[in-house]
Simulated scan of single mutants.
Amino acid sequence: MSATHDVKRYPGLGLLTTLFFVYLYAPLAVIVIYSFNANRIAGVWTEFSLQWYSAAIENQALMNALKTSLTVAAIATTVATLIALSAALAIIRGKNVRFRKLSETIVNLPLLLPEIVLAVATLILFSLIGVQNGLLKLVIAHSAFCTPFAFLPIRARLQGMSLDLEEASADLYADRWTTFRRVTLPLIFPGVFSGAMLAFLISMDDFITSNMLSSGGTTTLPIYIFSLIRSGTSPELNAIATLLILASLLLATAALFMAARGTRDHA
């Protein structure tokens, strides 16, 4: 009702909003459409075809890069979510936490610094301590910068959750672990899931840090895609991008569904 009133009050608002979304999503639509183009010249449409999806799936280098990205993202998401959950519980639910705001700022520090700075600092650190394994370097670095992305939804969920049920559980002589497992975690799970999905997408999407830390055999998907762009635009690249868009939409939909379900259950 309020949005409709604003559109009527400002006649150009609806058109401006439409133009904004067209500007934002038109390039994605072009990529999706031309991923079904049979012509090898990406910008010239001839006929509908799925050959570039088949070529992408049969590309062993691409599959290896995807496997590396999924492995790193899965491990980093797990580590980052556990750290973020522990930090959120300590900061939000801790009774005698000193420097609460400072602690929260430290957790969110990777969000405040340019990624290139973090990438260079991480590269120097690994050089000083002698870490050579490319996969290990990627997992540690991704876990570090994904933690604040997982922390924010969990913190928001904890802040919006009443203490009544946890206090009732304690009154019924449940220990802290039982209260967390049976009361707190189910209530904040939508936030945990959203944070984990956000961390996973950030890890899968990262280029700067991965480009600096990757070594032979640990090429991630963004680095491989960048190598394709440097050699010229290919219809296969459109197919890869379309599959990534579809995967992102599915994860975002799942996260929104969990958040909506959690809000409904909590209400």
Rank of each mutant, 00 (worst) to 15 (best):
L16E: 07
T17R: 00
T17K: 01
T18D: 06
T18Q: 05
T18N: 07
T18C: 14
F20K: 00
F20P: 03
F21Y: 09
F21H: 01
V22Q: 00
V22Y: 00
V22K: 00
V22E: 02
Y23S: 07
Y23H: 02
Y23Q: 06
Y23D: 02
Y23F: 09
L24E: 02
Y25K: 02
Y25I: 00
A26V: 15
A26N: 08
P27G: 12
L28N: 12
L28P: 06
A29Y: 13
A29C: 14
V30T: 11
V30E: 11
V30H: 11
V30W: 15
I31K: 07
I31E: 13
I31P: 10
I31D: 11
I31W: 09
I31L: 15
V32K: 03
I33M: 13
I33K: 06
Y34P: 09
S35W: 10
S35I: 05
F36L: 13
F36K: 04
F36A: 13
A38R: 03
N39I: 00
N39L: 04
N39V: 02
R40C: 02
R40G: 14
R40H: 09
I41Q: 14
A42W: 12
G43C: 01
G43W: 12
V44S: 10
W45C: 06
W45M: 12
W45D: 10
F48E: 08
S49M: 02
L50Y: 15
L50T: 13
Q51P: 03
Q51K: 13
W52V: 07
W52K: 03
W52S: 06
Y53H: 07
S54N: 10
A55T: 04
A56V: 02
I57F: 13
I57Q: 06
Q60F: 01
Q60H: 08
Q60D: 05
Q60T: 10
A61I: 05
A61R: 15
A61M: 08
L62W: 05
L62F: 08
N64A: 09
A65H: 04
K67A: 15
K67L: 15
T68Q: 05
T68P: 02
T68V: 15
S69M: 06
T71M: 15
T71H: 05
V72G: 14
V72A: 13
V72F: 15
V72D: 10
A73M: 10
A73W: 08
A73S: 15
A73R: 05
A74Y: 03
I75V: 15
I75L: 14
A76H: 11
A76V: 12
A76I: 08
A76L: 14
T77E: 08
T77S: 13
T77Q: 11
T77R: 09
T78D: 11
T78K: 01
T78N: 07
A80K: 04
A80R: 07
A80W: 09
T81S: 13
T81L: 04
L82E: 08
L82I: 11
I83D: 04
I83Y: 05
A84F: 07
A84I: 02
